[in-house]
Amino acid sequence: MTKPNNYEALYRQALLIRRVEEEIIRLYPSDKVQSPVHLSIGQEAVAVGVCSLLKPEDRMFSTYRSHAFYLAKGGDLNAMMAELFGKVDGCCGGKGGSMHLAYPKVGFMGTSAVVASGIPNAVGNAYANQILGKSDLTVSVFGDGATEEGVYHESLNFASLHKLPIIFICENNQFAVHTRLESRQSYAIREHVSSYGIDTFHIEDGYDFCTVQTQFANILADYHDDPRPVFIEIDTCRYMEHVGPGEDFYGGYRDQSEHLEWRNSDPLLTDQQTYNALLAEVNKQIDESVAFAEASPFPTITDLYQDVY
């Protein structure tokens, strides 16, 4: 891994995401977290590398495994923690929970528990940008399982047909809940995307935020020269269970040996010097966010009728 000048900043962002989720794991048995959680531990580098190159006005539409992208895009940690606690100061007023985070002021446009449902929203945003002549970037993030949904294919077709300015990013961790990719898909993802006339790219080292940033920067340069639909598949690895605070190796569909090579390359596990140098600062920020969430009140009956359209 070649370390760029902003290595420490990238590392700090990745460490913050991991430590936030480790704190969620610690808190979960207390029932303070008021919603199911889909953790990004192991996948942080994708969000960090990509979002490090985005501007606040660039809009991102993500998935229910959203903590990493929310934070990497600039979402407020206090507001996120309060949302997980179901408190009124949460980013969605305590009504959405972990799977429905949003922070539009930094271009994080919201997430949904429905697989692939954010993709057409992103395509609609890109279509609006095209009509309005805006150069802001639209990014759609989803997992490999979303490529099996009909709306995904409809969205690719529409984006290609209208040459929309959008970047699709597929986080491929090889699993949809407990089912391996090869048991679900008769197609190769990028080859199938190419059939729509969309340029595809592949980032294999999704554990390395430096590599993700560098390769994404190259893709962005090419995109800005010719705004159009672009598809990037990024290999990654989910360390924890599909949903919840634990591991799931007991399930028999995978084992720890499959993660060994990935973990051996994970800078949050291998670069202990930087980890230790940043840990106290990161932990302090997390402690403050938990205290903020604890102090925030729960929504009232009156709040129930707000934001209803």
Rank of each mutant, 00 (worst) to 15 (best):
241 E>M: 15
168 F>V: 00
164 L>W: 02
150 G>L: 06
64 Y>Q: 10
136 D>S: 14
180 R>F: 14
307 D>P: 05
84 L>I: 05
9 A>D: 08
227 P>W: 08
163 K>H: 10
50 V>S: 09
1 M>P: 14
172 N>P: 00
139 V>S: 09
144 D>R: 14
153 H>W: 13
213 Q>N: 10
230 V>S: 09
239 Y>L: 03
272 Q>P: 00
173 N>D: 02
182 E>D: 14
159 A>N: 03
267 P>S: 05
110 G>Y: 05
294 E>I: 06
35 S>F: 05
251 G>C: 11
289 S>R: 07
2 T>P: 07
126 A>V: 06
58 D>W: 12
129 N>C: 14
233 E>G: 00
21 E>I: 07
76 D>L: 03
231 F>M: 01
41 I>N: 12
129 N>E: 15
145 G>V: 02
63 T>I: 06
107 G>W: 07
23 E>C: 03
17 I>M: 01
141 V>E: 02
165 P>L: 07
64 Y>R: 09
94 G>R: 06
258 E>T: 08
56 P>E: 13
266 D>H: 09
249 F>I: 02
203 I>H: 15
166 I>A: 10
147 T>H: 07
141 V>D: 01
203 I>T: 04
234 I>K: 08
270 T>R: 15
288 E>I: 05
61 F>S: 00
112 S>E: 13
93 G>P: 00
133 G>I: 08
153 H>G: 01
113 A>Y: 07
239 Y>M: 05
93 G>A: 03
306 Q>F: 03
173 N>K: 06
216 F>Y: 10
130 Q>P: 01
216 F>M: 11
64 Y>K: 03
306 Q>E: 12
162 H>F: 09
45 A>S: 03
234 I>H: 01
255 D>L: 08
305 Y>N: 05
221 A>R: 04
